[in-house]
């Protein structure tokens, strides 16, 4: 909660110069690029936009991106919740190391992430045998891209739920258990309702991160149009091939999704506080 001092208006000059500095900085940093993109799209006209956007490759790219987002949300919701529960409720050796490892995907370069998976599953890699064993190709293919997307989005759900679970505590759960509820019932009826808004927030963060992922999926998937090309990779290729209408149009779609996510997250933040 922001404390508002009624007497703080004593120095309106400082107040308004600070506010306008921030607003001007953001207008330059965030506003201006967005406006130029919109302006460029209007200048290009609808004929070029439909020509470069309405084709199989672009639909495939957006479809693949949505699939990756969906799978990242699904897997990391399940495993992220499990790991958060383990981290909060249990003590084990090496817990602080696990805590450090959890943050690594935040800071590690996406290119390096993609490269690590190529080293593992590629020719001569330690896990090369898995390709033959499972009958699935894990590099330069969609399964590999799913794996790296899971990697880069992994921390969001866990980091969101750990403080929340600490705050909720175990009293309610213990009460339910004493009254004879099975562990499954306790989780379903007590734990889950307590953390659901935080969970939805973590899901939106995961979705946003998966949506924007570029480096890791480019390296692992090699970005073949109509096969392993995601929406962001399409934008990259379109820029290289000077298909500006396609690049800008697809960018705008991604930005629109980002805005929807942002305002959904803002609503969730408010719900979570209640």
């Amino acid at each position: 909660m922001a404390l508002v001092n009624p007497r703080h208006g004593q120095r309106p000059l400082i107040k308004y110069s600070l506010i306008s500095t921030v607003v001007l900085y953001l207008a330059w940093l965030l506003g201006l690029p967005l406006l130029t993109l919109l302006q460029s799209i209007f200048e290009l006209g609808t004929a070029k936009l439909t020509e470069q956007l309405l084709n199989y490759d672009v639909f495939h790219a957006f479809g693949l991106t949505l699939l990756l987002c969906f799978l990242a949300v699904l897997f990391n919701t399940i495993f992220g919740t499990l790991l958060a529960l383990v981290m909060v409720r249990q003590n084990f050796r090496g817990k602080s190391l696990v805590n450090g490892l959890l943050d690594l995907p935040f800071a590690l370069s996406a290119v390096v992430v993609g490269y690590m998976f190529i080293l593992l599953f590629g020719r001569g890699g330690w896990l090369e045998g898995i390709n033959a064993f499972t009958g699935i190709r894990w590099v330069f293919s969609i399964p590999g891209m799913i794996l790296v997307t899971l990697f880069v989005t992994f921390p969001f759900m866990v980091r969101e739920l750990i403080p929340l679970l600490k705050e909720v505590g175990t009293e309610q759960e213990e009460a339910a258990r004493t009254l004879g509820a099975s562990p499954w019932v306790v989780f379903w009826r007590i734990t889950l309702p307590n953390i659901r808004w935080g969970m939805l927030y973590g899901m939106s963060l995961t979705f946003a991160r998966a949506l924007g992922e570029f480096g890791a999926v480019l390296v692992v998937g090699a970005g073949i149009a109509g096969a392993t090309e995601t929406a962001t990779i399409f934008v990259f290729r379109a820029m290289e091939e000077r298909l500006y209408a396609g690049a800008y149009g697809a960018s705008l779609i991604l930005i629109a999704i980002a805005f929807i996510l942002l305002f959904a997250m803002e609503m969730l933040k408010k719900r979570r506080k209640v």
């Binding site: 690029p33 924007g212 934008v235 980002a258 942002l262």
Partner: peptide, 18 residues
């Protein structure tokens, strides 16, 4: 929070235009 939600590649595209 907008920069967290916008794909970084798209950020690059906007800056290239600007």
């Amino acid at each position: 929070d907008l920069p967290f939600a916008i794909p970084s590649l798209v950020t690059g595209v906007m800056l290239v235009i600007l």
